[in-house]
């Protein structure tokens, strides 16, 4: 059989498609690699309880937020549209929508410190197309800024508004950066990392350490004897919008 130039080109194109498809199938097959799931960290579930009564008594205090942002080189961008925030104060009625009538003290401008909820069933992790965000076995929802493609699907998925995108280069807004922690680059999403770099050194999160009233208690929710569990068993605590099924690990003592 004589092979014409056209036939040859067709076969060539066909083989290219076949090779491409093979690569894809192989890639899908290996999707379940142990990389993101397999972690050497023990069976912990890190969580935090915030005592809003103490916060209320220190109206206007933002030491936790400052400590967090300084530690992690979070830029202070004046343009509201491009803001980056890991831990910040928000009005009570915005944090707990539809939770109180118009006449409570909370409706009158009290603020609540909010951060990533490090959910047990995180929507952001479910939607991320590259596993740039994933949940560690100790409950910390991690971000890999090397892998993030900046599609912002996680921002659409997070029902708590905990994620920020670097719309502009953050470095000019940093002042003197903390040399022990990287900055971020334009085009990636970032959020609170529960101070995983400090946890690895056996330290408490920076916000917890910065609070003069010890309003934030951090610990292992799976350990019945941990201070956080003691606290939660003794006081009435709420999570943000638990009905969404995400399972936040941040509790607010009201």
């Amino acid at each position: 059989m004589k092979l014409t130039r056209k036939d040859f080109l067709r076969v060539l194109a066909g083989s290219a498609v076949a090779v491409g498809a093979g690569t894809l199938v192989h890639a899908v097959g290996s999707a379940n690699d142990k990389e993101s799931a397999g972690s050497t960290v023990g069976k912990k579930r890190w969580g935090m309880a915030v005592d809003l009564r103490k916060c209320r008594e220190e109206k206007g205090c933002d030491l936790c937020s400052r400590a967090c942002h300084r530690t992690h080189n979070v830029p202070q961008i004046p343009d509201r549209a491009h803001e980056v925030k890991w831990l910040w104060n928000e009005r009570h009625d915005k944090v707990f929508p539809f939770q109180q009538n118009d006449y409570t003290r909370q409706a009158l401008g009290e603020t609540v410190p909010i951060l990533c909820n490090h959910c047990t069933n995180p929507a952001c992790v479910r939607v991320c197309p590259t596993q740039a965000t994933w949940k560690r076995t100790d409950g910390v929802v991690m971000m890999d800024y090397h892998r993030c493609i900046g599609c912002r699907y996680c921002m659409a998925a997070c029902p708590y508004g905990s994620r920020s995108f670097n719309y502009v280069d953050p470095r000019p807004y940093l002042g003197t950066p903390n040399p022990d922690f990287p900055t971020r680059t334009t085009g990636v999403v970032e959020k609170c990392n529960f101070c995983e770099e400090r946890l690895a050194d056996g330290k408490q999160p920076a916000c917890v350490e910065a609070c003069p009233r010890n309003a934030m208690v951090f610990g292992d929710l799976n350990d019945g004897n941990s201070p956080i569990r003691q606290l939660l068993s003794g006081r009435y605590a709420v999570q943000r919008q638990p009905e969404l099924g995400c399972g936040p690990s941040i509790f607010y003592l009201v």
């Binding site: 800024y145 002042g175 003197t176 990287p182 900055t183 971020r184 680059t185 334009t186």
Partner: peptide
């Protein structure tokens, strides 16, 4: 783009911020 370098000249912190 993210990682900072120790300053090239001792004490030159500004170089870190401007680096990139």
């Amino acid at each position: 783009g993210c990682h900072t370098s120790p300053p090239a000249e001792p004490g030159g912190v500004a170089a870190v911020a401007a680096g990139g």
